[in-house]
Nucleic acid binder design. Structure first.
Lengths: 243, 243
DNA sequence: AAGTGGTCTAGACCACTAC
DNA sequence: TAGTGGTCTAGACCACTTA
């Protein structure tokens, strides 16, 4: 995994960009890079494409490859690299202490809706996991998740009080890399107000999503109600389609 | 543009998937496709990668290429294809009539923040465009946009009452294909309540974004305050990084 | 005309899965 | 062991930009 040619070059170029090595904001042309790295031009293209998809560089046919000026200026909005699977990860970097309080944990039969979303057969069971997430003792998110027992039979109360994704990745070697997310806003309910410390006039952001494993297996359906001050979802959209 | 090999194959495969031609949910292997389409395997891979990025198929090394079961089941959440540059486009399909009311339109010097975000020199001017967007006479979004006069010198009051992106694409041939979006939620202000018909307790969703042209030129900074019932932002996230 | 990125090919070899 | 997707190469030719 770590020995992929294009990936190493991608990382190296990213470091060189961050180190401000290319003051002209222009990268060497692909044929030069091919020669200096001692790899084929295809591999260079592939590395550059990954960087372009992350919004770090952009390519202009006939002119060259340039560094996105916003990348160095405003690195906070370019957090694609780490993860934007959910808010969870976006807050890890703050140096604050993340906490998880388990509100509810049980096994129930999958509703019809869950059967569809998680691709389950009638009669299959799911964990229902309700958690309150905080940073430095201030709660920011109520998370209601459903995970089929079939895909994660080893879950228990203790494991659910930490990162389920991390536990699952450690235990099985497969990771959660794809998701559909829907983002909406909603007035806060009484429960939101109590758990998140909101005034009645203050809203929550709602993120609903289905998370998938590498191989396409649906892993979790999650509904997250988030203190409006903490919802901050960043995306980089590229409609070029080809990536 | 329309004669690209991988693009044509991509479209053809998408049609065949939608026509339910592959009942086993499994596509032919890449080498067979290569032969039957009469192109190199690289081109097949490229076509398949685009489909995989759209979440339509997924590939499993050693096993084959499969159709994402959710694609056929729940096509509504897969609207990546059309556009998710903003809410604007997501609502076009509803068969409702979109309306734009121009609230304000002037030219002002770019603030420091705008200079940074739009990559302008001090002293440059931008259009400030404030619009209220409705469907069937019910307002759903207040849009405050800033566009450098340098990149769109031909804007006028009339053109701003329609789709600026469409006008610009028609006029110049370059289109807006990339964006950074930040999504948050916010209690509604008095103005929000008046313009969008909200109760004081009802919130707005806020989408802020920078839109870029193909070549990376920043085109617009936009701040959209959206009636919470109409904010519905869908994304497909793929952390595989390589695309 | 020279330079640069884009598309496409033909084929070698590797890594993983299923039988 | 056979089949499948992943990585990588070396090179041809095309399309666009700049001078």
């Amino acid at each position: 995994m770590a020995d992929l040619v294009y990936r190493n070059i991608m990382k190296d170029l990213k470091n060189r960009i961050q180190a401000n090595e290319f003051e002209s904001k222009k990268l060497p042309d692909e044929r030069s890079l091919s020669e200096s790295y001692g790899v084929s031009r295809s591999s260079i293209k592939r590395a550059l494409n990954v960087l372009a998809n992350q919004g770090i560089i952009f390519k202009k046919r006939g002119s060259g490859t340039f560094i996105n000026p916003l990348y160095q200026k405003n690195q906070t909005i370019f957090q694609y690299e780490g993860s934007n699977l959910g808010v969870t990860d976006s807050f890890k970097s703050d140096g604050q202490t993340p906490q998880i309080k388990l509100l509810d944990f049980k096994v129930i039969p999958a509703s019809e809706e869950l059967q569809t979303e998680l691709f389950l057969n009638p009669g299959e069971f799911v964990y229902e996991i309700k958690r309150l997430r905080s940073f430095d003792d201030s709660p920011f998110m109520i998370e209601l998740g459903y995970i089929p027992i079939r895909v994660a039979p080893e879950l228990n109360k203790e494991r659910v009080e930490g990162s389920i994704f991390n536990y699952f990745e450690d235990a099985t070697g497969t990771s959660v890399t794809k998701s559909f997310m829907t983002i909406t806003a909603d007035p806060s309910t009484k429960e939101d107000q109590e758990l998140l410390g909101l005034k009645p006039v203050e809203p929550v952001g709602v993120m609903e999503g289905i998370f998938f494993l590498d191989d396409g297996t649906p892993f979790e359906v999650s509904n997250m109600r988030i203190h409006y001050k903490y919802l901050n979802y960043n995306t980089f959209v590229n409609l070029d389609e080809d990536k």
